[in-house]
């Protein structure tokens, strides 16, 4: 699966990374006090001095760890993931570990591949004929990127919420009950009602819609529609919920509600969220990965990434130099 050359390159890179990582960790004081970066900022990244950009991660592990997270419980492990659209390589040998019951945010400038990566995790890219994906995505002891993996089974366990709310043109009740019924999770009307109520409560929508469950989902406001889509996803009790810029089409109030929701849902689900909004990542995420040109430049504890990024590129992006 992996090209021998790239394997060799990876080993070499990994060696370098280890060194760099230890250096970058050393440079950060234990008390968390912010110290001005030693050398970045002074020189432009890479091109200027030919000095390699310091890697912000190693073997998919974050640069620094978040103490609130149980790092033993891995949800998904991505190893050496490449993706091509025809001849164009959109993702370049990504490695990342995603821990259970965390919110992991993916940030980066437009076109950096963060949404593309997200859609690899439940194989939505299979719908694009020109896309070719290589690499390993491990979940529950299986390579879910393998050809023999049943994508329907995968998507049953890895749900997704999209950028624009897309409720089905059915009733609110049907929107939530439809997929569990298909998967035979519930069958009797009473079970369905219980499940719908629970999912809508979890999504914080129950009080607003409990009297109009038989109205079309499309009659709700944008923010409510998006929460309906979240309810639809969690009704299946998946392991992972992928969110692709879930608030970018919403007003600030709805955005705040959904951000609260993400933090609350972390208790039961693993959430991976792509966002354009760095404040959002800072507010909701335990870990944040910074993408640039199809690569993960830095994967780090969210607080650390925003306060003392390990790489110049991440720092430039966060301080608003580009993106």
């Amino acid at each position: 699966m992996t090209h021998p050359d790239s394997a060799a390159r990876d080993t070499a890179a990994a060696d370098g990374q280890t060194e760099q990582r230890s250096r970058s960790r050393e440079s950060r004081p234990a008390n968390g006090e912010v110290q001005p970066a030693v050398d970045h900022g002074a020189s432009e990244p890479q091109s200027a001095g030919g000095r390699p950009e310091r890697q912000g991660q190693s073997g998919g592990k974050p640069v620094s760890f978040n103490n609130e997270v149980d790092h033993e419980r891995l949800s998904m492990t991505v190893t050496d993931l490449d993706l091509w659209y025809g001849d164009y390589q959109a993702l370049k040998s990504l490695d990342i570990e995603i821990y259970s019951n965390t919110v992991t945010a993916l940030i980066g400038p437009s076109g950096c591949g963060k949404s593309t990566f997200l859609r690899c995790l439940n194989r939505m890219n299979d719908l694009i004929p020109s896309a070719r994906i290589e690499g390993r995505i491990e979940m529950d002891g299986r390579n879910v990127n393998a050809r023999e993996m049943d994508v329907v089974a995968l998507r049953r366990r890895v749900g997704m919420v999209f950028q624009n709310p897309n409720p089905f043109p059915k009733t609110i009740f049907e929107n939530v009950a439809y997929a569990p019924r298909m998967h035979d999770i519930v069958s009797s009307r009473r079970d369905q009602e219980e499940l719908v109520e629970q999912a809508l409560r979890d999504a914080g929508l129950w009080d607003e819609v409990k009297d109009k469950l038989d109205q079309p989902g499309t009659s709700l406001s944008g923010g409510q529609q998006q929460r309906l889509c979240i309810a639809r996803a969690i009704a299946l009790r998946p392991d992972v919920i992928l969110m692709d810029e879930p608030t970018s089409a919403l007003d600030p109030i709805s955005t705040a509600i959904i951000e609260d929701l993400m933090v609350r849902l972390r208790k039961d689900f693993t959430i991976v969220v792509v966002t354009h909004n760095m404040q959002q990542a800072a507010r909701v995420a335990d870990y944040t990965a910074f993408f640039h040109l199809g690569e993960i430049i830095e994967y780090n504890d969210t607080a650390t990434l925003f306060e003392t990024p390990a790489t110049t590129k991440a720092e430039d992006y966060i301080t608003g130099r580009y993106g």
């Binding site: 049943d150 329907v152 089974a153 366990r157 998967h183 392991d239």
Partner: peptide, 17 residues
């Protein structure tokens, strides 16, 4: 939390049909 891949896949056979 959810069923394992094997259990789901077994149930899916009919639906894929």
């Amino acid at each position: 939390m959810a069923d394992s891949f094997d259990e789901i896949t077994k149930q899916l056979r009919k639906r894929h049909g």
